[in-house]
Design a protein around this nucleic acid. Structure first.
Length: 699
DNA sequence: GTTCTAGAAC
DNA sequence: GTTCTAGAAC
């Protein structure tokens, strides 16, 4: 179908299901048809699932080579909606319907990768319901030849600021309403009115697949981007990019010569150690002395110069004005992490709007020199929408200005050390964000380890659970905690005390047959509401150690004791029932106080497993394998936790074959029958125990 | 963590 | 009509 939009721009729809003379064709045919249509000056709608990055990259490349704007409209509908629609539809062009459809859709959704601006899209619109889809269709239908749509990401449900454990229990921040208003606001502001004759077939978008992509020809738009864009726009957009200002050299009056040395050392060192990332030092002025010093010093070093370079431009408008796509920007913040003050800090807070202030508050209150904190930028922020910036890393450098706090009074030995620490901290935070970028990792472990983007595993001072890394706040928290007798200041409901009670006074309960073992370090207890045929808890007896968030390196021997007690009981159960498979691990955010290890058989055959939260708490990244936790604590001094509650609300997927299911009863009947092998990430590192593998899980 | 239940989904 | 979920109360 080629819909000639009412306003005049002709559209060509390229659909693989019909491209072979009305029948299904090949991707090559689609690419050719798209290229031809673009040559004829048409806008092109690629009506193809394109769920995986690699699948769509050829289309993106095509768009870029003819200098067209490439947009993605991502239909991010819940799996159960996709499945039920595809099953019940009739006369689908590709004949993906009926019983077969569930299987096909499940297989496709398994590999779903949300589009990123870094792939080369200039605009991405997320649609998560019918309303979003209608808006997107209306918007593109009404697009006239002189219209252009803003660049950036629209309608994405924010990953949101990381919720602290305490937030979860005190009150739920209503992120859903915030997100909704953002989506509506963006689309309605972009929507052209008065054009209702939809030339794009909405039903195709709704049922045909989860993702479609539009390649829009708009040469005039590109010209506006000016000189710099030509130079950089072609540069590699597959790299996760950090743009950063020179730290401390403006208001903090740090010596430029010395600063440039630190920058070049830290940056070249970093890019040599990390793949798939690039660093860009940004300054406003063409005559910037710090840029030329850094350029000169960098020229004398040998490293890949496309991975670290300097750029003249406004750090808040790098994409729109400079044509440089940066996922992450660093901010030369003040110690209070407050907006204002002029310079880069004021500019970034200004450009990012209130969303950044709120998100920052969720992550930290203050910052000390040499430290940084990464803040996920909500999708409501204009900086996110227009520039594609997903994170802001606030950093505080050393101060040489006697009019500002913590002046080092020209002590450049200390100053250089603090500046180096500051850059290293920023780069490490950036590295963990880069690792969590979809496509920059391919296993579940790495994604959950840094998914929040706030956690810096190499910096023991950096906060977890979205608290902060400042010593000031840490102290006050510790004082609060002392009063509670605990290490974290999470509040526990009365119902959350029972494990604590058992751990403190196991002798009181020793006659109960639910208690399997009591030692000085732990108590082994049958879970009162087992979520599988066999489900026991190994509860630590250390007072004040309530969850993984409290665990420090000193607790490593304890973790090992809990683990080996868990193994012992798993083996005992395997002797009784050789068909079982066991997994040992912790909940990222437990509901019950007192650190406890779950030992749970993987049949999940139990009437007590009743809801989505139950299921996801044992089968998503919310469940942290004991072996990983021990490694993590050993290497980093604490456990890396992703406290994102969204993990518990995720769609229901089989823990073996990853197929999606619309509800718990359907899921349970599937898992009762599924014989697929377990995912490879569980087969590694002896995370699963069974008789057939003969694994012990000890290594 | 569970129980209860209104109301959404089928 | 029944089934299932999700939020409040404990």
């Amino acid at each position: 179908m080629a819909g000639a939009a009412a306003a005049g721009r002709p559209w060509a729809r390229v659909c693989q299901d019909t491209i072979g003379k009305g029948k299904a064709g090949t991707k090559i045919q689609c690419l050719k048809a798209a290229a031809d249509a673009l040559k004829e000056g048409k806008s092109v709608l690629i009506d193809r699932c394109n769920l995986e990055r690699e699948q769509r990259s050829d289309f993106v490349k095509l768009g870029c080579t003819v200098q067209a704007d490439v947009h993605a409209v991502f239909l991010d509908l819940p799996a159960k909606v996709c499945i039920s629609r595809s099953v019940s539809r009739t006369s689908h062009e590709g004949n993906v319907q009926g019983g077969m459809a569930a299987m096909v859709v499940n297989r496709m959704l398994k590999n779903k990768q949300a589009p990123l601006l870094t792939e080369g899209f200039s605009r991405i619109t997320f649609c998560t319901d019918d309303d979003d889809i209608k808006k997107a269709v209306d918007m593109y239908s009404a697009l006239g030849p002189s219209h252009s749509l803003a660049s950036g990401v629209f309608g994405q449900k924010s990953k949101g600021p990381v919720q602290t454990g305490i937030m979860k229990f005190l009150k739920k921040a209503d992120t859903s309403s915030v997100n909704k208003s953002s989506g509506t606001m963006v689309t309605s502001s972009e929507r052209k009115t008065g054009q209702q004759n939809t030339t794009l077939k909405q039903e195709n978008l709704e049922a045909g697949g989860a993702c479609s992509m539009q390649v829009e020809k708009k040469l005039d738009n590109l010209k506006e981007k000016g000189e710099q864009s030509k130079e950089r726009v072609s540069s590699d957009t597959s790299l996760c990019t950090l743009a950063f200002p020179s730290i401390s050299t403006a208001d903090f009056q740090f010596d430029l010569e010395k600063a440039s040395e630190v920058i070049v050392d830290a940056a070249t060192d970093f890019v040599q150690k990390h793949d798939n990332v690039r660093l860009v030092l940004v300054d406003l002025s063409q005559k910037s002395r710090i840029l030329s010093l850094v350029k000169d010093k960098a020229a004398k070093k040998s490293f890949d110069s496309s991975r670290f370079f300097t750029f003249v431009g406004d750090i808040t408008q790098l994409h729109s004005k400079g044509g440089l796509q940066c996922n992450v920007i660093a901010n030369a913040a003040n110690w209070r992490l407050k907006p204002g003050g002029g310079g880069v800090n004021a500019a970034i807070f200004n450009a990012a709007g209130e969303a950044l202030q709120h998100a920052t508050k969720e992550c930290a209150d203050t910052l000390r020199p040499g430290n940084s904190v990464a803040v996920p930028l909500p999708s409501t922020s204009p900086l996110h929408q227009q520039e594609g910036v997903t994170h802001v890393i606030h950093v505080l450098g050393p101060n040489m200005n006697p009019m500002r706090p913590d002046c080092l009074k020209n002590d450049y030995t200390k100053g250089c050390n603090v500046l180096r620490e500051a850059y290293n901290s920023v780069f490490e935070n950036f590295a963990s964000i880069a690792r969590s970028y979809p496509g920059k990792q391919n296993d579940e472990t790495s994604s959950r380890k840094s998914a929040s983007g706030v956690i810096s595993p190499n910096d023991s001072k950096t906060k977890r659970e979205g608290i902060d890394d400042s010593e000031r706040t840490k102290k006050s928290r510790e004082e609060d905690n002392k009063k509670n007798g605990g290490v974290t200041n999470k509040t526990w409901g009365s119902w959350a005390q029972s494990l604590y009670e058992v751990a403190m006074h196991p002798e009181k309960y020793k006659n109960a047959d639910s208690i399997l073992e009591i030692s000085d370090e732990f108590v082994v207890l049958k879970d009162l509401y087992p979520k599988a045929k066999r489900h026991v808890l190994v509860i630590s007896r250390t007072d004040g150690l309530d969850s993984l968030a409290d665990v420090k390196k000193v607790h490593l021997p304890l973790l090992r004791s809990l683990h080996s007690a868990g193994l012992k009981w798993a083996h005992k159960f395997l002797e009784e029932d050789a068909s079982l498979t066991f997994r040992l691990g912790y909940h990222s955010v437990p509901s019950m106080r007192q650190l406890h290890l779950h030992v749970i058989s993987q049949d999940f055959n139990s009437p007590s497993l009743k809801n989505k939260k139950h299921w996801n708490s044992f089968t998503s990244a919310f469940f942290l394998d004991s072996v990983d936790v021990m490694d993590d604590v050993d290497q980093h001094g604490s456990a890396t936790i992703n406290p994102d509650e969204k993990l518990l609300a995720m769609e229901l997927r089989c823990h073996r074959c990853r197929s999606a299911h619309p509800n718990i009863p359907k899921l349970k009947s599937h898992i009762g029958a599924c014989k697929s092998p377990f995912p490879s990430h569980l087969l590694k590192k002896d995370k699963l125990l069974s008789v057939s593998t003969g694994r012990t899980g000890c290594s």
